[in-house]
């Protein structure tokens, strides 16, 4: 078991290393931008996976944490000065606000059925969008505002995107391993137990609520960090960060990639961003590509019915089954010898 874990870790590190070298091979602005988007949304979708995949909580308001993160850093950096200390202050503000919101939403509704959490988060996110639209003096409304990010000494203007690329990649890798560690810890096991059978977990002596609230806070804070990276990578923010579509993106990425796998959301983010990019280009070929959400909606429905484990989950299951079969064969062979 230990050895298999290590090989997968090595594979992930190798992929991260290759991704790290990419901008030095292909220094194309649009390509870098697309990759940064993939990384940012991968973090966001992974935070969603903590709720949906590991604990079995459906949130429809994850965009509010994303928006809180994006606006926290954008407002602090445009109001103060664009230095690293104000960036860090923005991150701290993002963590605190998103943590409080996630805590309150969790305490109020997580003891109820899953519908209530889904609906309350949907309504709360709607409220955040509404407030952001109205509070134009701070948020800039739908037009949004641009802000400057700190200059790096010794880095040319042209290479700034490479630095942001490496920064988001590093954040994604660190958060990925952090979350992987969390889900493999005893705490993560309890969460999976809650997903599978919460009454059983309760009868084993665990109090469910603190666990659910805790993971809701962790997930919210990580989503806010994704929002921070999003705002910094664009150097621009508007009220679209609170849009329901942001939540839907995370949902689609997680479901298509594979719930409860953490790698799945990363793959889902890559698929969604790439196909969004290329299908929009195809819009001139046929109008259906302009309405690409239909295609994704249908794929989403089919995945939920036929492949509830998503891409990564289905592959893992197949591999596991094969391994079990081989083991059964081995045992049979040995018993035949005896």
């Amino acid at each position: 078991m230990m050895k298999r874990l290590q090989t997968s870790t090595w594979v992930y590190l190798l992929i991260a290393f290759v991704l790290m070298l990419l901008p030095f091979v292909k220094d194309d602005r649009w390509f870098l931008f697309l990759m940064i988007q993939i990384f940012v949304f991968a973090i966001f979708a992974m935070s969603y996976d903590l709720l949906l995949g590991y604990t079995g909580i459906v949130s429809f308001g994850h965009a509010m944490f994303f928006g809180i993160g994006a606006y926290s850093v954008a407002v602090t950096m445009s109001r103060l000065d664009s230095t690293f200390s104000s960036f860090l202050l923005g991150v701290v503000v993002a963590v605190i606000i998103s943590g409080i919101v996630a805590f309150l939403a969790g305490v109020l509704t997580l003891k109820l059925k899953s519908h209530y959490y889904a609906m309350l988060t949907l309504a709360l996110a709607g409220m955040f969008l509404y407030i952001a639209e109205r509070w134009r003096s701070v948020t800039g409304g739908n037009d949004g505002f641009t802000f400057r990010i700190p200059e790096l000494p010794g880095v040319l203007q042209d290479h700034r995107n490479v630095v942001i690329y490496l920064f988001t990649l590093l954040s994604m890798v660190l958060l990925f391993f952090g979350m992987k560690r969390l889900t493999e810890s005893p705490l993560g096991r309890v969460l999976v137990g809650i997903r599978e059978n919460d009454q059983r977990v309760e009868s084993l002596g665990f109090r469910i609520m603190p666990y659910k609230v805790l993971i809701s806070v962790v997930s919210g804070v990580i989503a806010a960090l994704a929002g921070v990276l999003y705002a910094v990578s664009l150097r621009f923010v508007n009220t679209q960060v609170f849009d329901i579509e942001v939540t839907l993106d995370a949902l689609l990425m997680t479901i298509i990639g594979g719930v409860g796998t953490l790698v799945g959301p990363i793959l889902g983010s890559a698929i969604m961003n790439l196909s969004h990019h290329f299908l929009s280009d195809l819009a001139s070929v046929h109008w259906i590509f302009q309405r690409w959400v239909i295609l994704f909606g249908i794929i989403f429905i089919l995945v939920v019915i036929f492949f509830p484990n998503g891409i990564v989950g289905t592959i893992q299951k197949k591999m596991h089954e094969r391994k079990m079969k081989q083991r059964v064969k081995q045992v049979e062979k040995q018993s035949a010898k005896n």
């Binding site: 889904a118 839907l248 949902l251 239909i294 909606g297 249908i298 989403f300 429905i301 939920v304 019915i305």
Partner: peptide, 11 residues
């Protein structure tokens, strides 16, 4: 149910 009906909503 929640997930699939939301997907259908999009469609």
């Amino acid at each position: 149910q929640i997930l699939i009906t939301l997907g259908f909503m999009l469609v």
